[in-house]
């Protein structure tokens, strides 16, 4: 049985279309990543699945329950870790966990021992009785995850679990999540705009762009779906559009796009394509600063399926976000 079924969800906030028929399924026990830039609709999808907001149309089921018709059944079955920390900073870690367990219907000895176990599991045993205000960013985030797990949910939603953490804390968090995913036999849906994060954590992932899934598969499948190699050329001057046209027309070049002064292309063979790319550019008098080649990364996958640079759209997404649409 699928732990999460998302079928043709649509949702708009006044004039912003957040979801445009997003569809995917998550199998029980897997870690599924929704990857995409800010504003692509990842968080809105999670909010619909966590029963925080209702879709305009479409259907979604979590743990076999419909999110619109049986929200309370869904709420008992899920843990939700919001994008910005939802911990009560004026309370201790233990108090936070106790309260969360209580509103999920736990009580007494069972709750106390579960909370102790969670603090241990999250490496917060020492800090459990200190006020959260004094926690580091990573500790706070781990407590957030603990709040999502205290009542032993079937499905855990992690909305951008490592955004705002420094690289060290992020790596530690990844280890933590991998451990939890194994130990608690959970289904995890995580959203991220970090390629490495999706690559590292997700069993399968869907790339989301403008409110719909553009491609779905394991990270390996997605990378292998792109034949050949990626060649990146740093251009010396501003004639990027011209360079793109020249390179795209070459034999052995599967696709080419520019981003500022960077020309990215996918080629059948790097060893054969690089000389012809360089000579074609030279013939036009376009200067080249540097050339690199690598196996296709998820970045290239994203570029291929959306036709846009990940980082570039990210900026656009942010600009759109500040335009005053519903979700903060």
């Amino acid at each position: 049985m699928d732990a999460i079924v998302v079928d043709e969800l649509r949702k708009r906030y006044s004039d912003v279309r957040a979801l445009e028929g997003i569809t995917f399924g998550v199998r029980t026990g897997e870690v599924f990543g929704l990857l995409g830039p800010n504003g692509a609709g990842k968080s809105t999808t999670v909010k619909v699945l966590a029963t925080l907001t209702k879709p305009d149309s479409g259907r979604a089921e979590v743990a076999g329950r419909d999110v619109v018709r049986e929200p309370n059944a869904v709420r008992r079955a899920i843990g939700y870790v919001p994008q910005s920390s939802g911990v009560d900073r004026d309370a201790t870690g233990r108090e936070n966990l106790m309260l969360q367990g209580r509103v999920q219907g736990m009580s007494g000895r069972a709750l106390e021992s579960r909370v102790g176990e969670m603090l241990e599991l999250l490496g917060l045993a020492e800090a459990g009785d200190r006020v959260v205000r004094g926690y580091s960013g990573g500790m706070k985030r781990r407590l957030d995850v603990g709040l999502g797990l205290v009542h032993r949910p079937q499905v855990l939603f992690l909305d951008e679990p490592t955004t705002g953490l420094d690289p060290e804390a992020r790596a530690a968090m990844w280890d933590e999540l991998e451990r939890l995913a194994e130990g608690e036999s959970l289904t995890i849906l995580l959203t991220t705009h970090y390629m490495e994060e999706a690559d590292e954590l997700a069993d399968r992932l869907a790339i989301v762009s403008r409110g719909r899934v553009v491609v779905e598969g394991t990270p390996e499948e997605l990378k292998q779906s792109l034949r050949g190699e990626a060649v990146e050329v740093e251009l010396g001057d501003g004639r990027a559009a011209e360079a793109e046209a020249v390179v795209a027309a070459l034999d052995g070049v599967l696709e080419a796009t520019v981003d500022g002064r960077r020309l990215r292309s996918r080629v059948a063979s790097g060893a054969r394509a690089i000389p012809s790319i360089l000579s074609a550019l030279e013939a036009k008098g376009i200067g080249v600063e540097a050339v690199t080649t690598h196996r296709p990364s998820l970045d290239d996958v994203y570029l291929h399926y959306t036709g846009r640079e990940f980082a570039a759209e990210d900026e656009q997404g942010r600009a759109g976000d500040s335009g005053g649409n519903g979700p903060r």
């Binding site: 709420r75 939700y80 919001p82 994008q83 910005s84 939802g86 509103v103 999920q104």
Partner: peptide, 13 residues
């Protein structure tokens, strides 16, 4: 401002 309220809203509270 912090996501305290949304966190509770995803529970049966």
């Amino acid at each position: 401002d912090r996501d305290v309220l949304p966190r509770f809203l995803a529970t049966p509270v």
